[in-house]
Design a protein around this nucleic acid. Sequence first.
DNA 1: CAGTGGTCTAGACCACGAG
DNA 2: TCGTGGTCTAGACCACTGG
Lengths: 267, 267
Amino acid sequence: MKPDGPTTLHAPPTAGAPGVAAAGAPTPAFSPLYQQIKALILQSLQAGEWKPGDPIPSEVELAARYRVSQGTVRKAIDELAAENLLVRRQGKGTFVATHAEQHIQYRFLRLHPDSGTLDDIGPATREVLACRRVRANAEVAAALQLQPGETVVQVSRVLSFQGIPTIYEELWLPGTAFRGLTLEALSAYAGPMYALFETQFGVRMVRAEERIKAVAATGAAAQRLQVPAGTPLLSVERLAYTYNGVPMELRRGLYRTDRHHYRNELS
Amino acid sequence: MKPDGPTTLHAPPTAGAPGVAAAGAPTPAFSPLYQQIKALILQSLQAGEWKPGDPIPSEVELAARYRVSQGTVRKAIDELAAENLLVRRQGKGTFVATHAEQHIQYRFLRLHPDSGTLDDIGPATREVLACRRVRANAEVAAALQLQPGETVVQVSRVLSFQGIPTIYEELWLPGTAFRGLTLEALSAYAGPMYALFETQFGVRMVRAEERIKAVAATGAAAQRLQVPAGTPLLSVERLAYTYNGVPMELRRGLYRTDRHHYRNELS
DNA sequence: CAGTGGTCTAGACCACGAG
DNA sequence: TCGTGGTCTAGACCACTGG
């Protein structure tokens, strides 16, 4: 194939590919080929064509499938790897990222012990307190882009480190996607909760936003965390998204920070 | 130049380039060409060959200078741009990143208003309370990799949003690098503090780590922030680094979070 | 050894910005 | 119109992994 500066993708011959917007659009919305390839790979991920932990086809195979050069596929995969959706392993292949078998557990948890060099000083103890199906109030519905009153699954739990209850959190999940989630299943599962979501419900959390405030412990939470009422706690509100920016979880956590801290990197 | 799979860089003919480690090293410590180019560009940045805001030479020029292909230079620049050390602008060139004239001020400040869609609802009011040269205690010295007792500059200030004092912070800087920093200079300067550090002291903050806890307001801080003692506040401890991971600032901030929150993105 | 991702090159053309 | 970065290709070779 000669370099000819293609503007649309080959597989769908002319139209149908991104870059061809509605008629009369002010900007033609030019989209680079590798972005179109990226979108196609994303579709395959979203459709479950390749499961978390599985290898995706090799770069050469994908190049042949999409009728582009390997370099173009490479750039698409590079971006997906940079977004932590794929993981490259030289000599082995490219794999769908997963919350299970992550090199270290809890990819999204930013709480670190103050002194201990590693979190391996004791794996977290988890106690699921409740798992109920309830109707979404206005706030939860808005966050999850549901109608108020729709069914959501509400979970509450406590995480302890070295026997000290450190995190109390409640979370809400769309009822339709998480039909059949029970307290028993949650309690029995050993790995990270997001790994269970992947295997049991096909929901992969890909990105999240957190809003952090300092609050005083109130009665219920204070009891769960075994601290006096009024103790300052970190309030961490998380909205987690699947592919394509669809919100799939609202989570409200209260963190004790007497022995731990929330760590963040700025650049 | 033919593809010949070079292992070392051309400009320094054979040795001297990364990739040639101590004799008998178990692994030859192979380093890709573009990493070596990246290191060279980094050196030029560190040496001040190109100032913040200035354009660096074009890719073609750099390729000629280092005797490599444009694609290799491109990959080196790509990584530096991903680390926010350089900024690419199509049609114009590649520029050294700066804390001044950043598209939005305060690149490292993660505090956002709860409701206001944008921070443009009032630019922060800054009041510098003090700027003294003191001797580093053990903790400050350790963080800044100094000897205890060495001179550091200690600054304290309050940031207010819409007239409400919201951030009280103290910060420590190495005395040698910041010789001549005065309260007057700080108070008079209009832009972000890190922009002043760039222009006046040639120190460019490139990366930072923050540790966040929830604490209760004590007398002094409570007074500065006009809240009752015991009010929960966010404690944000920041260590900021220049090039090559050299720590140049320790900062301890207390944030009111009744109208604002600390925002973070996880992926 | 074969297959995978990783590096490097050379050359073509495109989109953008400024004169 | 020119120079900049941005995209795309084709082909070579290197490094790592596993059978």
